[in-house]
Design a protein around this nucleic acid. Sequence first.
DNA 1: AATACGGGGCG
DNA 2: CGCCCAGTATT
Length: 355
Amino acid sequence: MITQILKNFNSFGFQYDLLDWYYENKRDLPWRQDQDPYKVWVSEIMLQQTKVDTVIPYFQKFMEKFPTVYELAKADEQEVLKTWEGLGYYSRARNLQSAVKEVVETYDGKVPDNPKELGSLKGIGPYTKGAILSIAYDLPEPAVDGNVMRVFSRVFKIEDDIAQLKTRKKFEELVREVISKEDPSSFNQAIMDLGATICTPKSPACLFCPVGEYCQAFAEGVQEELPIKTKAKKQKTLSYMVLLVKNNKDEYLIEKRLNEGLLANLWQFPMISLKEVGLEGAAEWVQKEYGVSVRVKDKIDHLTHVFSHIKWDLSIYEAVTVNEKVKDSRLKFVSKEEIEEFPFPVSHQKMMKFL
DNA sequence: AATACGGGGCG
DNA sequence: CGCCCAGTATT
């Protein structure tokens, strides 16, 4: 299988030309200042499904607030989420803190340098495990992400569907064979830089590619057709009414979301599912659900928000309290200024201009 | 093997 | 509007 793919492939030449290019052209990124395993770890978690440019300011702020595993381990989860606010995939933040606590308690604050212990930490999957072991600890471990699969699917003209789990394993096998044993850290990062700047999804710059001469797809002119990836199905739409409830002290009603599932433990303005309740029953439902009597006023705005798997259709309404006895501990009345302290999803940040 | 889980940028 | 991005956990 793998041996067939590697037949006639010049691994040493490939490594040499790739690394030679990388040493001259590597991007100057905040998490590349040193090999601190904690920094590598945080950056890798943030970079999951997220562009470098998006991550940079978050990484800076995160490191100022939580410079080592010890600060993060003892931090308040809400503060961690606040630092993560807007970055998305919030379970990454919660899992990271949970794992860091384990590192402090079980490994005396030292990030494990072996696959078994590292891979057992929450939020560290096959990719992140390999990334930390190679980048921070110079071990020749594969770190196969979207970039790596794109680059190598083109280099070896591999036509397997990269959306399949087993395809990633195939690429891991492949990388184990071709990775530089002298500088696996640079090798893995070089592939990622190559994928981000030259071997891009659309219109790859093959004429500038340092390893173009090794690329089978380029040789046959089919680089644009690879990698093969089955497309995701389209999102379902969920419609909600969102209430901006103000009391007579000019405070607004906010609610903490459940500790699991979508946007877990973030805060929001009360949302009412229009599928289950309907526009007319809203006030009654709020009374029953939250124990707060409200009078719904005018509709202010309408917006949609797209997630990876669903789409929210939100109708924003102004509302006032008639009787504000809050019995539910998930609920709070807070001033416009106090709202800043709570982590909110982007969809609800968009509504704050109406407060 | 399929699905849940964010948000932004680009053509 | 669909696609892509330094993926992981759960079912």
